[in-house]
Design a protein around this nucleic acid. Structure first.
Lengths: 200, 200
DNA sequence: GTAAAATGGAGCAGTTACGTTCCGTTTTGG
DNA sequence: CCAAAACGGAACGTAACTGCTCCATTTTAC
């Protein structure tokens, strides 16, 4: 990797950081954060729109690659989803950028490609609904949306310092797998809502 | 209410619509969408920052009012949370705006007030953890974040047309209450063979 | 109906960022 | 070590937006 590659990498990293915080930040600020002259930035990405597009490409690549590396098509579905959480949560900034930017440029196309990247997760969920490990009274699409949304929320909350990033994947998985309802104490196999102790 | 009130209302509504879609949209566009001259906009909100502040106030008021009207402090906690979903989901645009804007102006203060508005929900969750209806191995704060995040996600997904807004509260509640794991032993909702759902 | 209030259009100065060019300096690669 | 590549600073024109003023017109309230 020559210098050009490192410069390009620095620019993309700085851009995702800066533009996620303030999507209307100036390119001068991006260049400064990247430790690079504004001239150089323009040499790599002549227009602002070009930079944004490159950023979207890069973020989508990262997400797709992280998901692939978790091999969501292998093993028990619930464990597969756990692996996906572990690898995707750290991508927080790129995720946040993808989520925040949709309406700036060619929204439709971006949304489509986002769901393409999530396609392996969707297949895992459908597999889970087929083999009985995932409930079937929720649409698979919704499950994927809720799951990916929760991952983003978790990173966001960690970024605000309300939880530790280290705990995020576990919290996500507990929440998404079992929900927030307290488990039944023991024997009774009734999965319905348990009777509440009346108050006041 | 006289004309000024309706003009102010139209401006706030247009602003939340336009600025949620593109947070760097021009004030001219906001005025146009509001069906109002740019001069009038400036008469009501002399500076862009003033408009944003008013928008934040308005959105926070709406959220707080919606939560209050659901009376989260009354009755069984899980039902209370259901009521909150029902009233808060339709606030989508205001929610999205609050969620997207945090880093533009006085972020700290905005985040603080956001959680103030959610305080009644936090108390309901804590009440649920006390009376045994909500699991205690998840921090109450995280539950509130996950719950509110899921509401926002649901509105977002509905806005993209992937689910019906009408279904959103139910999907949110099923997901957040019970998670996506299939219930252990019960009447099969689908005629497929179902192996034992492994626990933990 | 009339006076006050509200509105909207036109125009203008100030600011900011973008995109570009030119050129001297630093770094890389052979 | 030297040529080529990469970089950074300065400067400039352009475009867009903001905030503001003036003034004619419409709407409201009494």
């Amino acid at each position: 990797m020559g210098r050009p590659d490192r410069t390009r990498r620095a620019l993309l990293d700085a851009a995702v950081t800066v533009l996620t915080k303030d999507s209307s930040a100036s390119l001068a600020e991006v260049a400064t954060v990247a430790g690079v002259g504004r001239t150089t930035l323009h040499r790599y990405y002549p227009t602002r729109e070009g930079l944004i597009r490159a950023l979207v490409e890069d973020a989508l690549d990262r997400v797709a690659e992280a998901i692939a590396s978790a091999h969501p098509e292998e093993g028990p579905v619930l464990e597969a989803l756990q692996r996906v959480s572990d690898t995707v949560v750290p991508l927080g900034p790129s995720l946040a950028f993808l989520h925040a930017e949709p309406d700036q440029y060619n929204a439709r196309d971006l949304i489509r490609r986002w769901y393409e990247a999530l396609e392996p997760v969707a297949r895992a969920v459908e597999r889970g609904q087929t083999d009985g490990s995932i409930r079937t009274d929720l649409p698979a699409k919704w499950i994927v949306d809720a799951y990916s949304g929760l991952i983003l929320t978790a990173w966001d909350v960690a970024d605000e310092g309300r939880i530790w990033l280290h705990d995020a994947p576990r919290l996500v998985m507990t929440t998404v797998l079992r929900g927030i309802t307290a488990p039944p104490t023991h024997a009774p196999p009734t999965p319905t809502t348990r009777p509440e102790a009346d108050e006041t």
